[in-house]
Design a protein around this nucleic acid. Structure first.
Lengths: 146, 146
DNA sequence: TATTGTTATACTCTATAACTATA
DNA sequence: TATAGTTATAGAGTATAACAATA
């Protein structure tokens, strides 16, 4: 057993370092928790989404979304309204201030992602995407079968 | 901004799934915390190491090592003695029971790693290693420069 | 009965720093 | 003064489950 060559360890060390470097932007500069940032990012494309879909899209559970949404609503970054078609659902929608925050934040995190990707040749980026997808699939299989 | 295509997000989702699948072994079956498992794994090769080196080798800080070592000592898995050459250091050493635990645990986590690696062709494994190394280096650069 | 979302609780982790001892 | 390690503390995050509203 050599910890340094153990893939799960290497992945965690990498993901932790990458996470911290992204958190420097959303946490330190914009005072968001990781889950709040993920919910905002989930909303970035369309500006609106049901809570349940935000959970699926951002790999969060319903409790994490509920708390993140409460924080984002308090900060005036989104609104939460009851879905008239199924009153159990909540429809989340970015406010002008939420969109404005994303306009500032997104380029900053994308610049960090671009800096990371400079470590890879273009064809390597596609290979990495593909490998991450396959590995994630298998890790989830392992998790499920205990 | 598309969260699903954002490399930091993909890496965290992958590392979390992989971590949980490995934790099922060391936490559920052997009642170890993540940091305890890392310290044990650091000791796996030689059986002995200074606390400070364990921290460097396992990417933990001195406080995490101190707590993990206290737990492992309580469980009888290692001993902690003062280094006669520099009495500030602690020398960690696996007990027979610690070695025995690793003899059972290591093949189980390695089997899980092998299952993950089946998702990749042999040449992809080498490419992934190389990419992880380069990305980790750059992520640490980002972290340091805020 | 099942699903969506909220709230409560206890537990664990984390970050920071103060502190001891040794050098 | 600097380093290795320990302890204290508060804050954040996590997991579980109970709960309310709706379907």
């Amino acid at each position: 057993m050599e910890l340094q060559r153990f893939l799960p360890y290497q992945l965690v060390v990498l993901a932790d370092a990458v996470s911290r470097s992204i958190a420097q932007v959303y946490a330190e500069r914009f005072d968001l928790s990781r889950d709040e940032w993920r919910v905002l990012a989930a909303l970035a494309k369309t500006g609106t989404m049901k809570s349940r879909d935000a959970a699926l899209y951002a790999t969060l559970d319903k409790m994490q979304v509920s708390r993140a949404v409460a924080g984002l609503e308090r900060a005036g970054l989104l609104t939460r309204t009851i879905d008239p078609e199924d009153r159990r659902n909540r429809i989340l929608e970015l406010t002008a201030s939420g969109r404005e925050l994303l306009r500032k934040l997104v380029p900053m995190v994308e610049a960090r992602e671009a800096f990371l990707l400079e470590a890879l040749a273009p064809e390597e980026r596609a290979q990495l995407q593909s490998m991450i997808g396959r590995l994630t699939e298998r890790a989830q299989q392992l998790e499920r079968h205990g």
